[in-house]
Design a protein around this nucleic acid. Sequence first.
DNA 1: ACAGATAGGTTAAGCGATTAACCACATTAA
DNA 2: TTAATGTGGTTAATCGCTTAACCTATCTGT
Lengths: 343, 343
Amino acid sequence: MAEKKATIRDVAKKAGVSVASVSYTLNGIDKVSPETKERIFRAIEELNYKPSLTAQCLSKGDSKLIGISLPITEKGDIPGMLLENNPFFGEFISGVESVTRKAGYDILISGVETNEHYSDWVMRRKLDGIIMVGAYPKSIFEEIKTIDVPIVLTDTYEDYASDFHRVMVEDEKGGYMAVKHLLELGHRRIGYVTGSIDNSLVNYNRYSGYRKALLEAGITPEREWFFEEHVTFDGGYAIAKDIMEKQNVTAVFVAADIMAIGIIKYFLERGKNVPGDISVVGFDDIKIGQYMMPGLTTIRQDIIMKGRVSAEMIMKDIGLGRRTNDSFILSPSLVIRDSTSAL
Amino acid sequence: MAEKKATIRDVAKKAGVSVASVSYTLNGIDKVSPETKERIFRAIEELNYKPSLTAQCLSKGDSKLIGISLPITEKGDIPGMLLENNPFFGEFISGVESVTRKAGYDILISGVETNEHYSDWVMRRKLDGIIMVGAYPKSIFEEIKTIDVPIVLTDTYEDYASDFHRVMVEDEKGGYMAVKHLLELGHRRIGYVTGSIDNSLVNYNRYSGYRKALLEAGITPEREWFFEEHVTFDGGYAIAKDIMEKQNVTAVFVAADIMAIGIIKYFLERGKNVPGDISVVGFDDIKIGQYMMPGLTTIRQDIIMKGRVSAEMIMKDIGLGRRTNDSFILSPSLVIRDSTSAL
DNA sequence: ACAGATAGGTTAAGCGATTAACCACATTAA
DNA sequence: TTAATGTGGTTAATCGCTTAACCTATCTGT
């Protein structure tokens, strides 16, 4: 099994120079003559030497590691990351990875439990940046504010988030577009289905768009048109029972595709027709949406792009050597498929 | 912003002891009196000291990092990880994370490009273990064999994989069950849809099961019943055209749910009925399958469990201090939903 | 009463890099 | 001629922790 990994010392010895010279040539610092460089490179080649990232991290202070944190599912026997329940996260991560990888960074995925000290993780690992996906309790932000590391928050509107990079989508506009679409199809009694609206302004803003469109059409949204559940397939499926029983909406705007899919399932399974008996428009445009039957009409956000932009913001700060705080706001677009129809 | 992070030296000074004493108490080595321990803990508390994992890695030699590598999508403008195309991976990772997290390990996600040196990554990061999901070219295995680190391979039958931990599912049995089910429903001309069969014995073994069931029923599988495409929604959707045009099968066993979903979409979209016009049974039981309409009949493997077991194998080796090679073979089960029916 | 064990600590040498400071020699400028 | 500058290198401290080796004082058994 593996010969001992070569260290910079081995290289230096083999090339007959000091470790400093090896380090300088490796870091492109012009302090070494071409001939010596040549010898050093040959030694490196022969020993198959690769510098230890750990050692570099310790001496340079940067780990080449970007952390991505995902919310943990709040319920269930074995708590897992939301990654397990919503394809959204996989797509997002894939976007991040595509840019970090070619910049030489690796990504660390972690679920965040609200009771653990998030900043400890960041500091102990000396992460070069962190991307926090989704909503977290305020205390977490108080905590990370004190860490001197680039941070991007996705989908976080709360005021205390303005110290960080943010990438989001025009949620209100998205909600507005969704409902506008439904109104144009002749729907009047339109429901809003969402995850918790308390700890997520995202859901609230989508609601605002929903409300605005309704109001413009001279309709006052009623309390009974509002449905709240977990943002999972199961959550959508569960809340669909309510929706069906109450029978007071002809269409719903659902704040997440994944819930929308659960809802549709429930209806179809009970012999109802979608969009015949209920029109539904989702939000996100996760890949699966277009492969459903009916194809899911939804408000699209470019998830991969969201990941890429997040990663690029981190890279920018790393280049700058300090934390900045940009906002990148994606434009949503309406993708009309087959889960909505005229009343 | 952040006060400088406290080091073990600061703690030692504050507690009035040597750094060694601090280190010993922290590592539970019984060499420090209760009173001194008390002082040290108080200093730690006051300084909010957390040991640097980087430094620990350098001196102890283990990084508390587990790498998970995923195949990169072979096509597309912006290459991303398969994570982006198949919910399977998110579920798997979630399973891994649930055990590694409580063991104090973080996971590193990386796409693997065939042209890069995989072992370099592992060694430079000093990973404590790696989990390779899916199929890779043989050269990669030659390479990792020389690394002295726990390794688990999922879904890899090839002979050179026997040096490593493996976790898989009884693929042949799964294929057999799928086809048996179809046969019982009266189907005779049954197709097999798969990703590349060349570089994946998984797909081949599922095929064997398929073939075996057919042969037992006195049916010889024909060349035209075999369909090969990318393992993505799009791949399934694309190959469905062939299937529909040829019109020589009444049912298909599809080696991955994700392709099955694409196929169903294509048929339904063209006014065909599923399972009326074609019965389809998938493989995996990704979560979305049960929320489709029709619900996807499939061969279930417990993906989360697969992730958990993989992680536990790594943990076992780490505990042992050496690489071992177990095999864990999950039993598949048939989940009958609505995408199959009697002929 | 004395050797040997034990309890409780300290010192200092790594782990594998980076980098400021220093040095010797050859050029160049005044 | 002499001081300043540049070239190509080396030495050694440092990053933050672990741990073998060493030390001293007290305790134990005979």
